[in-house]
Amino acid sequence: MKDFFYGIEDLFVNVLFAPFDALRALELESWFSANIISWIFSIIGLVAFVYWMMQLAKYNSNNEEDKSVTAHSYL
């Protein structure tokens, strides 16, 4: 049973966490190269937010939503 848990440890430490070790090594070389991944995720989030707002504006301009007071029970 001990070998089973050592196998799980080996999987996580040497395989699944390897990209994080590469990022840690990248951080020591350059601050900008280490933070490029954060910028990529920020840009993806911004694009998704703009797309979502454009979809909401499209549905709002088509008057497809029931905006009456009794449309939702919690109102």
Rank of each mutant, 00 (worst) to 15 (best):
Ala34Glu: 00
Asn14Ile: 02
Trp52Met: 06
Phe5Val: 05
Ala34Leu: 02
Val50Asn: 00
Ser38Leu: 13
Met53Cys: 11
Met54Thr: 11
Val47Tyr: 06
Phe20Ser: 06
Leu46Gly: 14
Asp3Asn: 11
Ile43Ala: 12
Tyr6His: 09
Ser33Tyr: 08
Glu9Trp: 14
Asp3Gln: 14
Tyr6Cys: 08
Val47Gln: 03
Phe4Thr: 10
Glu29Gly: 03
Leu16Ser: 05
Val15Asn: 11
Asp21His: 12
Phe4Lys: 13
Phe49Ile: 11
Gly45Arg: 08
Ala48Asn: 07
Leu26Ala: 04
Ile43Gln: 01
Ile36Cys: 04
Phe17Trp: 12
Leu46Ser: 10
Tyr51Ala: 13
Tyr51Asn: 06
Ile8Gln: 06
Ile37Met: 06
Leu28Val: 04
Val13Trp: 07
Phe49Glu: 09
Asp10Arg: 08
Met53Lys: 12
Asn14Ala: 05
Phe4Ala: 13
Leu16Tyr: 09
Val47Ala: 14
Phe4Asp: 04
Ala48Trp: 07
Ile40Phe: 12
Met53Phe: 10
Val15His: 06
Glu9His: 15
Ile43Ser: 05
Leu23Ser: 09
Ile43Tyr: 02
Gly7Leu: 06
Lys2Pro: 00
Ile8Cys: 07
Ile44Trp: 01
Ala18His: 06
Ala18Gln: 14
Ile43Leu: 15
Phe17Ala: 11
Leu16Asp: 02
Pro19Asn: 14
Asp21Tyr: 14
Asp10His: 09
Trp31Ile: 02
Leu28Gln: 13
Ser33Ala: 10
Val15Pro: 03
Leu23Gly: 01
Phe12Cys: 03
Gly7Arg: 05
Glu9Thr: 12
Phe32Cys: 08
Arg24Thr: 02
